[in-house]
């Protein structure tokens, strides 16, 4: 069992290193091509219902999305687009 676990961890680490290395050099079109509204809808529902923009004020959204950036592992671009969307429809 221990060998299997070590193998498992090795695979995870190897995949991670490859992905991190690739991520550092690659710029994704996925996030760049998606609107703030799309990113808001797609990422929020991964855990909970999508929030109503009127729930918070503009500056409160800045703080709340900073919190969610960390919790949901959003990139800087994704979180910025989501904040801009929420402010724009607030």
């Amino acid at each position: 069992m221990k060998e299997r676990l070590i193998f498992f961890i090795g695979v995870v680490v190897a995949v991670t290193i490859v992905l991190l290395a690739a991520g550092c050099s690659a710029t994704s079109n996925v996030a760049a091509n998606r609107s703030g509204a799309q990113l808001w809808g797609e990422n929020c529902v991964r855990c909970h219902n999508a929030p109503t923009p009127a729930t918070l004020s503009d500056w409160e959204w800045e703080v709340a999305v900073s919190h969610m950036r960390l919790r949901a592992n959003l990139t800087e671009l994704e979180s910025e687009k989501i904040v801009e969307f929420l402010k724009s429809v607030n």
Binding site: L20, A22, A26, S28, N29, N73, T75
Partner: peptide, 15 residues
């Protein structure tokens, strides 16, 4: 250490 990123068009997150 945690975060999210893209490898090409594949999104991943890590911790």
């Amino acid at each position: 250490i945690r975060g999210g990123a893209y490898a090409g068009n594949l999104k991943y997150n890590y911790s």
